[in-house]
């Protein structure tokens, strides 16, 4: 079996989540990788351990990875593959279901475990249940949760890069602009430590009080939906059912109550710390270590204890 993995890239690099997708795909068969619109990223993809061949699509119509042309491209390539895989990122979730529909396939999103070539485990109901599903489709189209598969090493591969011919696609959608947040911190979905704040942070200014702690721990910063909706931080920091799914070594939740939708995004973290003034807050039910107290008092104490 040969599997095609659509890779997410950023500034000439392959995102770590996509290396996890490669690792997952390698358990199914030989891995070919598809990189859209970035030659440098194709070079990086060729070095990933386990990638046998890289397909590079350079057609200008594919720049910005709009779903319409990329799904068309995937369909044109699909004939050679048993599975089409991507990381469950915004890009993967935007493109793969569209390609699946064109192939008359029911996609399998957010796979957390591959049982065999046809059988996969995926969370449903915000992670309150795990469904094992068997697909009867001839071809499988899946997105995988990066947090559940170790990333394939970025080095060690020596794949050839083949450049693809352009595909015809109607230009009914047009890229206008992108606003990416600049941050020196590790990426939220692959950070070793995540420090998250909720409504308890009160406002945007107070939310920044988490930065020294995050700096000290080399952590990414996350947030609850309430913190994002209240405008304390940008949308891409939301952790949860409909935000980022994270599983760091250490997750520190400050002023977060622990609604199931939030837990859905972080309860697979190795160690969870919760700081909340309400002893009944549900976050304590999943926390390994809890402190009941005012976070504005505990935070400076924590920083000084860390030294």
């Amino acid at each position: 079996m040969t599997v095609l993995v659509l890779l997410d890239h950023e500034e000439g690099q392959i995102r770590q989540a996509s290396r996890s997708a490669v690792q997952a795909a390698a358990t199914l068969g030989t891995v070919h990788a598809l990189v859209v619109g970035d030659e440098a990223a194709a070079g990086a993809a060729a070095k990933i351990a386990g990638v046998e061949k890289v397909l590079l699509a350079t057609d200008p119509a594919l720049a910005h990875e709009l779903a319409e042309p990329v799904a068309t491209l995937l369909v044109s390539l699909a004939g050679d593959y048993s599975h089409i895989v991507a990381a469950a990122t915004a890009t993967g979730k935007n493109i793969l279901p569209r390609a699946a529909a064109l192939l008359d396939v029911q996609p399998i999103p957010d796979v957390v475990e591959i049982v065999d070539a046809d059988t996969f485990v995926r969370p449903i109901y915000a992670g309150n249940a795990l469904a094992t599903v068997r697909s009867s489709d001839g071809k499988k189209v899946l997105t995988v949760r990066a947090a559940n598969f170790d990333p394939a090493p970025a080095d060690g591969g020596t794949a050839d890069v083949a450049t693809l011919a352009p595909v015809a696609s109607p230009a009914t959608s047009q890229f206008i602009a992108v606003e990416l947040s600049q941050s020196e911190r590790p990426e939220l979905d692959s950070a070793r430590v995540v420090v998250s704040g909720g409504r308890g942070m009160q406002n945007a200014e107070n939310f920044r009080l988490l930065e020294p702690l995050a700096d000290r721990l080399g952590a990414a910063i996350g947030a609850s939906r309430a913190a994002v909706d209240s405008g304390f931080v940008a949308n891409e920091l939301q952790v949860g059912q409909t935000g980022k799914i994270v599983a760091p070594e250490l997750y520190v939740a400050l002023g977060i109550s622990g609604a199931i939708q939030h837990l859905a995004g972080m309860k697979d973290s190795k160690v969870i710390v919760a700081i909340n003034k309400d002893p009944e807050a549900p976050i304590f039910q999943v926390a390994d270590y809890g402190i009941v107290g005012d976070l504005f008092t505990v935070l400076p104490e924590l920083e000084s204890a860390l030294g």
Binding site: P123, L130, T132, V133, K267, F284, V286, Y289, E301, A305
Partner: peptide
Amino acid sequence: PRLTVVKVAEPPARKAGVMVGSAAELV
């Protein structure tokens, strides 16, 4: 349907944690 549900299971439960009294103890 194209997908057959083989089974639906509870996710593994986390084991109960502990409350700590201070930031120093936490660290």
